[in-house]
Nucleic acid binder design. Structure first.
Length: 499
RNA sequence: GGCGGCAUGGCCAAGUGGUAAGGCAGAAGACUGCAAAUCUUCCAUCCCCAGUUCGAAUCUGGGUGCCGCCUCCA
């Protein structure tokens, strides 16, 4: 039985969607005006794992994630760069997908854009004005009247009186009834792109779009609404107010939020100068290592992107993959012991994930299953591959690929590294027929040829040659591993992605 | 000022009453021409103080330290 921490009640609750077997999931998406940063990586990997686990648990998930493509930041950025705002927004949508694809994040079923839901937003504003939960001002702005919504502050634990008294020094609009009122619709300034409305030309406020699109695509009540912790107030608080004031139905059953990303123990932010993009991260670390790193921390905790733990995660993942590869071929008929081990793994994994998506424990269950493999003997040992297969299956539920890198992958990496010329130089030093033939070959073929040459040297007990080849490949970042049976495997060292 | 989070071995990190998961790093052994990899084993009493309890990392009270939200932010 899945249990989920609900920020609305601040408790872990049994997960009961409206319709048994189906889950509507709305994840707050990005404002498309810049490249995605580490916080986005954390957020979308978190909800990707949640979605994968829901599906693994048998739920039919309808996953919707918006793009905010009209907003001050976009307009400002477009002006700075002399680019059309729509063009800029579409460009960064593509960049978003490029990053998320590298991180292995499943595509949502729908990516609604704010600009394509203006009509739904205006209907919502109209509904709120009709019900006296909102009021227009002389400049064409429509504010939500927070005092008209008794439950305002419920999600974030704010007190309306307190919020109201905290009048901000730079509060620009004296026509607000209450300083805590927020804009549903913003009157357009001259020259800005805008849409016509009953209240004059303008554009939507930030909070409005999520309500309008969620209501449009998922109905009045959605099961899970997810996003970063920083969205609790004011964004999600406002979404509740504007949605429920109109529909009179609970907007969301389970509000879930992921913790922050810190860099060197401080919040990552542009002003602190410790802001980094997903791209910069992936220049240094394998996307799978990043995912593994994040899985080791519970999603509601803050996590600190620093090099040591990231490298540790890469090492751990690689060791797990290699360790499994050693047993994968043992596929004799499953024995009682093997069946028990599989059941034990499944139990530990699902218990961990059912407990508010406790991925650190889920990952640990994989390691424990792997360790038990070591105790197997005889017929049990000959069937160990079945356990390996299950460990990989559960890894996939977390979005981890626990199969060792296939030769094709190594080839791709070698090609990206463009080390063929250097390999040919090495080959030239150990001139012989095999290598002469390999002159036109790809990087991985050259490596294989060198390995063949080295194996021959080893058989002849010419260790100087064998170690020389190993040392030179090592300088190119290629690590050799002589395995029992005389087979030599190679891989790129360090877990680093190609630069 | 209001609201909230965190403090567990060298590092990361689970665990919310029953005697400290897991990973990284480190050490020892097996294997190996040597390496690497792999396998096996070892490696903490949980920020401080006072309570509750047969029993607390886990509950209560009091400290100390760190962080976040309250403005755009995933």
């Amino acid at each position: 039985m899945l249990r989920v921490f609900n920020d609305l009640t601040r408790r872990v609750e049994p997960f009961l969607p409206q319709t048994p077997g189906a889950v509507s999931l709305y994840v707050c998406g990005v404002t498309v005006y810049d490249l995605c940063h580490l916080g986005h990586a954390r957020c979308y990997i978190t909800w990707d794992v949640v979605r994968r686990y829901l599906e693994f648990s048998g739920y039919r998930v309808h996953h919707v994630q918006n793009f905010t493509d009209v907003d001050d930041k976009i307009l400002n950025r477009a002006r700075e760069q002399g680019e059309d705002p729509v063009h800029l927004a579409r460009r960064f949508e593509a960049e978003y997908f490029a990053d998320m694809d590298r991180l292995g994040i499943l595509r949502a079923h729908s990516y609604p854009r704010a600009t394509e839901h203006i009509g739904q937003m205006l209907s919502l504003v109209d509904c709120l004005v009709q019900s006296a939960n909102a009021y227009p001002t002389s400049d064409g702005t429509v504010y939500f009247d927070v005092a008209s919504f008794p439950r305002y502050g419920k999600l974030s634990g704010r007190d309306l009186d307190d919020l109201s008294q905290r009048t901000r020094l730079d509060e620009p609009d004296p026509s607000k009834h209450n300083p805590a009122d927020f804009a549903l619709w913003k009157g357009a300034k001259p020259g800005e792109s805008s849409w016509d409305s009953p209240w004059g030309a303008g554009r939507p406020g930030w909070h409005l779009e999520c309500s309008a699109m969620a209501l449009d695509q998922l109905g009045k009540t959605i099961d899970i609404h997810a996003g970063g912790m920083d969205l609790i107030f004011p964004h999600h608080e406002n979404e509740i107010a504007q949605s429920e004031a109109c529909t009179h139905e609970p907007f969301v059953r389970y509000w879930v939020h992921n913790g922050f990303v810190n860099v060197d123990a401080e919040k990552m932010s542009k002003s602190l100068g410790n802001f980094s993009t997903i791209r910069q991260l992936l220049d240094r670390y394998d996307p799978q290592a990043v995912r593994y790193f994040l899985l080791q921390t519970h999603y509601r905790q803050d996590c600190d992107f620093s090099s040591e733990p990231l490298e540790a995660a890469g090492n751990a993942l690689k060791r797990l993959q290699r360790s499994l590869a050693d047993r994968q071929a043992a596929l004799a008929a499953p024995t009682v012991a093997i069946t028990e081990q599989i059941e034990q793994l499944a139990r530990a994994f699902t218990e961990a994930m059912d407990d508010d998506f406790n991925t650190p424990r889920a990952v640990a269950s994989l390691w424990e299953a792997r360790a038990r493999l070591g105790d197997l003997e005889g017929a049990d040992r000959a069937a160990a591959g079945h356990v390996v297969a299950r460990i990989r299956e559960f890894g996939a539920v977390l979005g981890l690929d626990l199969a060792a890198k296939a030769a094709a992958e190594g080839d791709r990496l070698a090609a990206v590294l463009d080390i063929a010329d250097q390999l040919r130089e090495i080959a030239a030093r150990y001139e012989d027929d095999d290598l002469a033939e390999a002159r036109q070959a790809s990087a991985s073929q050259l490596i294989e040829a060198l390995l063949t040459r080295r194996t021959r040297a080893k058989k002849a007990r010419d260790f100087a040659t064998a170690d020389g080849i190993r040392a030179m490949l090592s300088e190119l970042g290629i690590t050799l591993a002589d395995q029992p049976g005389g087979v030599t495997r190679w891989e790129l060292a360090g877990g680093a992605a190609p630069r």
